[in-house]
């Protein structure tokens, strides 16, 4: 039996998760929530992580009913993400590795999402839609790489939703995306928004600019309500994502879809994906907010796989990088 602890802090969620082989022992998270209308910035987010990380670690150990000396491998997020917050979790991971003489493994955040999604849903070889505040990618596995079939050419879909929520001054608690989803349920009229699919890629920044330009006019004239706009934005951006996912499935001859990343816990997105899957006789695999949203368990899962096939990361390599592509990682644990 191998026990792995995972540290995640690449954005505004700070998480520590502990697994024993394939069983989740604990999954503790603390989110840095900003006031309505404001996003999270690197310096303040790092400050939040510094203040919370030792408590979150202790809570994860308590819930797992283990001590750090019982852990076999320490895993942390190397990237991609914001530099300052990433560094906080890497520092603590390196320090506890030194205190208890444990091997350390540097994990790609995107690979963490994919491997934990596969483990939790027991899907075998899915086409993966990875949608979050920082990433939007359609991914399929081939020859020891997770290949990116399509992606955003500017901002991530979650970033588009977050910034739209800021325009409407929606609450960031528990997350802007969740509040958009709730308001969208009361939306009736579909506003005409740009639909931007470019081959296998998507673009969201133009949609956001378009909304920024028209927002006050729409609201003042009562042509559309905030609820209508939440509904319209979701319909438009999710339809774009489903189009490129379906095309990737056709290319990869895949009959499984796995949705991962923070936007993946949006039930409207899951419902729309279900319709497409049904038409193709495919199966949809999705998880709930415990595992969709960034967490420490995903880092432990991917880190443990990597550790078992490649061993630990050399000390000088236990750095952080802001850019780290999904297809840079050699997937040594799959055929």
């Amino acid at each position: 039996m191998t026990i792995a602890v995972g540290f995640e802090g690449s954005a505004n969620k700070l998480g520590v998760g502990i697994i024993r082989d394939q069983d989740v022992l604990s999954n503790v998270r603390h989110t840095y929530i900003t006031p309505p209308g404001e996003g999270f910035l690197p310096r303040e987010t790092a400050q939040h992580h510094r203040e919370c990380i030792l408590n979150v670690l202790q809570k994860a150990l308590d819930e797992a009913k283990i001590m750090l000396k019982d852990v076999d491998v320490i895993c942390y997020t190397k990237g991609p993400g914001m530099g300052a917050p990433l560094t906080v979790t890497a520092l603590v991971a390196r320090t506890v590795a030194q205190i208890y003489n444990k091997p350390i493994v540097a994990v790609n955040h995107c690979i963490g999402h994919i491997e934990m999604g596969r483990l939790i849903t027991r899907s075998v070889n899915p086409t993966v839609l990875y949608v979050s505040g920082g990433n939007t990618q359609v991914i399929a596995y081939s020859r020891q790489r997770y290949r990116i079939f399509g992606e955003t050419i500017d901002i991530a879909v979650g970033n588009c939703l977050d910034r739209f929520a800021r325009l409407l001054k929606l609450s960031n608690d528990p997350s802007p995306g969740y509040n958009i989803e709730q308001l969208a349920k009361k939306g009736i009229k579909l506003a005409p928004l740009p639909y931007v699919v470019k081959g296998m890629d998507v673009s969201f920044s133009g949609i956001l600019s378009y909304i920024e330009e028209h927002l006050s006019g729409w609201l003042d004239s009562k042509e559309f309500t905030p609820e209508d706009l939440c509904f319209s934005l979701q319909e438009t951006v999710f339809a774009m994502l489903i189009e490129i996912t379906e095309r990737a499935m056709a290319h990869a001859k895949s009959s499984e879809v796995l949705i991962v990343g923070g936007v993946g816990c949006n039930e409207k997105l899951q419902d729309m994906m279900k319709v497409m899957c049904k038409e193709r006789n495919a199966v949809l695999y999705a998880t709930d907010e415990r595992f969709c949203i960034d967490n420490g368990v995903m880092i432990a899962v991917a880190g443990l796989l990597q550790y078992k096939t490649q061993g630990h990361t050399s000390w000088a390599e236990t750095t952080c990088v802001q850019r780290y592509r999904t297809d840079d990682v050699h997937i040594s644990w799959r055929e």
Partner: peptide, 20 residues
Amino acid sequence: ILVTETMQLFGPPVPTYNYY
């Protein structure tokens, strides 16, 4: 400060580190 706080809460450390 973060490193020293981590050592205070989770230490004392074992004498050597073998995974460089």
